[in-house]
Simulated scan of single mutants.
Amino acid sequence: MLFDVEILKKIDEELKKYVDKNDELYNASKHLLFAGGKRLRPYLTVITYNLKKDNMEEILPAAAAVELIHNYTLIHDDIMDNDDERRGKPTVHVVYGEPIAILAGDLLYAKAFEAVSNIKDSKKAHDVLKILSKACVEVCEGQAMDMKFENYNPTMEEYLEMIRKKTGALLEASVEIGAIMADCSEEEKTALKEYAKRIGLTFQIQDDVLDLIGDKNKIGKPVGSDIREGKKTIIVIHALKTLDEEKKRRLLEILGNKNIGEEEIKEAIEILKPSIEYAKELMKIKTEEAKNYLKIFDEERRKVLEDLADFIISRIH
């Protein structure tokens, strides 16, 4: 099994310490936190740390900090995108209203830094704080870029920069924090950062692919919602660059039209098929590159990070 149940259990126990109150604000903050997320980011922090060390108690506050930040971004994302559903459940603002949802996100953000303050080694806590705050800045910058793309067609370079920030920054931070806590050398830290950059990219591309060809019940939202919203994904950008004029014109007619039905979404997905294949090939290349950067580590210990890179492009939600 890819995800070690014991590690996941310990991460959950650690997270509960920070939201252990029973009132509306805390219940709102827990709504998504314990709604069946993959725990990919804190898990990455722990397994990166495990490349060199095995003291779970040392790494858990740092892993919790990463997950608390991630869930804060999800709550605010859902408000900005006006999404009604995540992980198959109504979103926080739908259940508790926008004001409480904003506060619940802010609470998780603050609790992340409380978690960092629980790291025993103050030098490591300081270094983790720097990485985490930088990631928060980049996530905000990436989200702003994504919103800007609604009004024009970005280049491939602009899109890749956006996902490196919006999706990749926190995945990179998860790995970097594990490396700091494990006393990795500079060479090892650089290799891990390159690994994380690539899995951050493949994670977002796989999300884009799943939106078009995934299972609604598995991904927790309607298939093709990116088409309806007019999202400029890597698939759309590639299509607009490579399609003939007739298909391009038709795609642009459908893209971003909130009133389109199932038939038009199917038609758009059909037009996008060659670009979906392009995205899948790119993910394979980036996954192999990511795994190559791990070769400087012990073969047995790095295997779980290699398997995780494969999991990211084969996951179904």
Rank of each mutant, 00 (worst) to 15 (best):
A101C: 09
E138S: 05
L25I: 15
E98K: 14
V139Q: 08
T73S: 15
L60G: 09
Y72L: 08
G97F: 02
N22R: 09
L107M: 15
L25D: 08
L51P: 09
K17F: 14
K17V: 15
E14F: 09
V66P: 02
V95W: 08
K89R: 11
A115F: 11
D84V: 07
Y43K: 05
H70P: 13
C136Q: 11
K120A: 14
K134P: 10
D12R: 10
Y49F: 15
Y96E: 02
I59G: 00
N82R: 09
I11W: 09
K53E: 15
E57W: 07
I11S: 07
T91S: 00
A62K: 12
L32P: 00
A135N: 06
D84Y: 10
T73V: 10
A62M: 12
N27R: 15
C140H: 06
L40Q: 01
G97K: 02
T45G: 00
G97R: 05
S122V: 15
D84W: 01
R41A: 10
K38H: 03
I69C: 10
D81I: 09
V94K: 15
D121E: 11
K16A: 13
I75M: 11
A63H: 09
D84F: 07
K17P: 09
L74N: 01
L60W: 11
M80H: 06
L74K: 01
G37I: 00
L33Y: 04
M56Y: 14
R41L: 09
G105D: 05
Y18S: 04
S29V: 07
T73R: 01
G37K: 00
G88Q: 05
D23W: 02
G36A: 04
F113I: 14
N118V: 13
V92A: 10
R86W: 00
S29I: 05
Y96S: 02
S122M: 12
G105C: 08
H93C: 01
I59P: 03
G88N: 09
D83V: 02
V19M: 08
C140P: 07
L32C: 01
D106Q: 03
L74R: 01
G105N: 08
E57L: 13
V95F: 06
A135K: 10
I102D: 06
S133L: 15
P61K: 06
K89F: 12
L51Q: 04
Y26E: 07
K124S: 05
R39S: 01
E24D: 12
Y26R: 00
Y49E: 12
Y26W: 09
K111W: 10
K53G: 10
I47P: 00
V94S: 03
S117A: 14
I119W: 08
K123W: 02
M56K: 12
Y72A: 12
V137Q: 13
D81H: 04
C140K: 05
D78Q: 00
L107R: 08
H70D: 13
I59A: 03
D12P: 03
L107E: 10
D54T: 15
H126A: 15
D77S: 08
E114F: 09
D12S: 11
L74P: 04
Y109N: 13
F113N: 10
K120Q: 14
I119R: 07
S29P: 06
V116Q: 06
L40V: 15
L15D: 01
L103I: 15
T73E: 04
Y96G: 02
D23E: 14
T45L: 12
Y96D: 00
A110L: 12
L32A: 02
L25V: 14
N71E: 06
D20F: 12
L40S: 03
H93V: 04
I47M: 02
D77W: 00
L129P: 04
D81W: 04
E114Q: 13
